[in-house]
Simulated scan of single mutants.
Amino acid sequence: MTVKAKKHLGQHFLNDESVAQKIADTLSLQGYQNVLEIGPGMGVLTKYLVKKNITTYVIEIDPESVTYLKANYLNLAPRILEQDFLKYDLNTVFKNQPFAIIGNFPYNISSQIVFKALKMRNQIPEFSGMFQKEVAQRICSKEGSKIYGILSVLTQAFYEAEYLFTVPPNVFSPPPKVDSGVLRLTRKEDFSLPCDETLFFKVVKTGFQQRRKTLRNSLKTFNLSDNLKANSIFGKRPEQLSVQEFIKLTQLIAEDS
């Protein structure tokens, strides 16, 4: 049997073995015993993960794919989670233990997958996989770039982000309309923030909501003092600030309140 790709789930099945192996090999296997693959479909990537010296779990929302995997990956069957990754409490399985994330991520939820991983960063030392190329580039982009944004800053605050390689549409069934990009996120040795974390997230998100404006204008809702707004950092636009500068900005705002 084969599984029919479902549009509403954003499924595009990878059918190039060499690309699947390359993605599986992006994991360093350092600092964790478990790996979770998101959206395995018919297991083209899973096949290479189960050969590695780690314990592979897969999470799949599509019942047809789950049936296929259970029939073709008998040893994996107890670790196939028929769940929605975005809604499922992963500690039901991992019990606060570290684990890596990997996958050929459905384009329509790929940013949400990253945001959920960031919330669980204490447990996720490594994260790699395939996104729409533009999203992978955005996550890895640096300040000064037009595509640098919320996802770039929040991810790079905690992880080193590397864009690894591009994958053309013709290795998928059905082929997507755009190129895909594979990236790797490696958690920083010290991934604690030297500022209020909740405030940091709020400053970054609010700043980029009006990315063409200077921070003096886009952060008006914070009711900043005139004294603080005179600081030259507020004359910049959000995409001009590095992660470190966003941390500094958060510290300044915290001191001002």
Results as ranks from 00 to 15, higher is better:
A136N: 06
S145E: 14
E126Q: 09
D179K: 15
Q137M: 14
F131D: 03
A161H: 08
C140G: 05
S141Q: 12
G144V: 05
S180E: 03
E162T: 15
G181S: 10
S141H: 10
L164V: 15
Q156A: 11
G181P: 06
K177F: 00
S128H: 08
K133V: 01
E143T: 12
T166G: 05
P176Y: 07
F172I: 04
E143L: 09
T155P: 01
R138V: 02
A136P: 04
Y163M: 07
Y148D: 00
P168L: 01
R138S: 15
S145F: 04
D179I: 02
V135I: 13
S173K: 15
G181N: 10
V178I: 13
P169R: 09
K142T: 09
L151W: 00
I150Y: 02
I139C: 10
V167L: 02
C140M: 04
F172W: 00
A161S: 15
E162I: 12
E126S: 06
V167A: 03
S141M: 12
F127C: 14
F165D: 09
Y148I: 00
K133I: 02
P168M: 00
G144R: 08
P169F: 03
S180Q: 05
P176G: 10
V135Q: 06
E160C: 11
L151I: 09
Q156N: 11
A161D: 06
S145P: 00
E143D: 13
C140W: 03
V135D: 04
L164H: 07
K146G: 08
A157C: 08
N170I: 03
E143R: 15
Y163I: 04
S180W: 03
C140A: 13
K142V: 07
S152C: 09
L154E: 07
